[in-house]
């Protein structure tokens, strides 16, 4: 079997989906000024809830709704902490990741008696997610750069005082886009579950962080971020095929190493929103 085949590119397309969804979500929240590194844990929570709901209800559709809801909830939690309680954004995101990692091990043991895995449960065709991701990325590109709402979103992250003066509720906008980011991460988790057919606690395996990397490479624009996500998906797909040729550890390393190389080689970090990571204080400066 040759490594390069149509099959490879198709599975790359599939594996790019969670990365693209996370990258898109992160693009929204960072444009509004909120860094969310909790995407990794949020995606894991999405996959977990998807597994739980699918197992108990047998409805894959309801399960995806559950994943979206838990993602939005974690986005809400992160936004509350980062925007209103003025916690350091990265620290709050890390807290989300640590909490979900604990919950994943705990709840699988409580529910099924297995540490970190679920039994197989009802799934839907993962290609549905691929299509949805493409659609969402296209719509978002238009939304962000061609609509008044998109302009407002960018102003909130770039110059919150100006946005405030123009009558935009800065903190509420940040809250909304962070919740959206969470929901998209939940969707990414739902894809991961439906792709594998069961939950494992290592199933996100850094793809959330790779999603952030894809956003950085995409320079806060959805379409370029999708292209970057596709590149990382290709590496991921290649990785699985290479396992027959080289020690599995080296092929596992490949996507992580390439992520660093790509980030290091990437210098166009021009579009970072000016108010990124800073709390907005009405009376301050």
């Amino acid at each position: 079997m040759s490594i390069l085949s149509l099959d490879l590119f198709l599975s790359a397309l599939r594996l790019a989906t969670p990365i693209a969804l996370v990258a898109l979500g992160e693009t929204f929240s960072e444009l509004s000024g909120v860094i969310n590194v909790g995407v990794e844990g949020t995606a894991l929570a999405g996959a977990l809830i998807n597994a739980i709901v699918a197992y108990h209800s047998g409805s894959p559709f309801l399960a995806v709704l559950g994943a979206l809801a838990v993602g939005a909830f974690l986005g809400l939690v992160h936004a509350t902490w980062a925007v209103y309680l003025r916690a350091d954004h990265v620290v709050s995101g890390v807290a989300v990741n640590l909490l979900v990692a604990g919950i994943a091990l705990f709840s699988t043991r409580i529910l099924w008696g297995w540490r970190g895995t679920s039994p197989a449960a009802a799934t839907m065709n993962p290609w549905i997610f691929v299509a949805i991701a493409f659609l969402l990325v296209g719509l978002s590109q238009v939304y962000i750069f061609r609509t008044p709402w998109g302009l407002r979103l960018r102003v909130v992250g770039e110059h919150p005082h100006a946005a405030d003066t123009a009558g935009i509720n800065v903190n509420r906008a940040r809250l909304l886009y962070t919740v959206l980011n969470g929901a998209l991460c939940g969707l990414a988790g739902a894809f991961l579950f439906n792709n594998l057919g069961r939950f494992t606690d290592g199933m996100v395996g850094g793809r959330g962080f790779i999603g952030i990397a894809a956003m950085v490479v995409g320079n806060y624009r959805p379409l370029p971020a999708l292209a970057a996500a596709y590149f990382f998906g290709l590496v991921d797909a290649l990785q699985m095929r290479l396992q027959t040729y080289i020690p599995s550890q080296f092929s596992i390393i490949l996507p992580y190493l390439l992520t660093v190389v790509v980030l290091a080689g990437f210098l166009g970090r021009a579009n970072v929103p000016k108010a990124l990571g800073k709390p907005y204080l009405k009376e301050g400066r």
Binding site: S92, G102, F106
Partner: peptide
């Protein structure tokens, strides 16, 4: 309880520790 309850507890602790405004709000 499963030992992993301790990880959940740890996660909750961090949440409350990292919000500087929580107790001043």
């Amino acid at each position: 309880a499963p030992s992993d309850f301790a990880s959940v507890l740890q996660g909750i602790v961090i949440f409350f520790v990292v919000a500087p405004e929580l107790f001043r709000i």
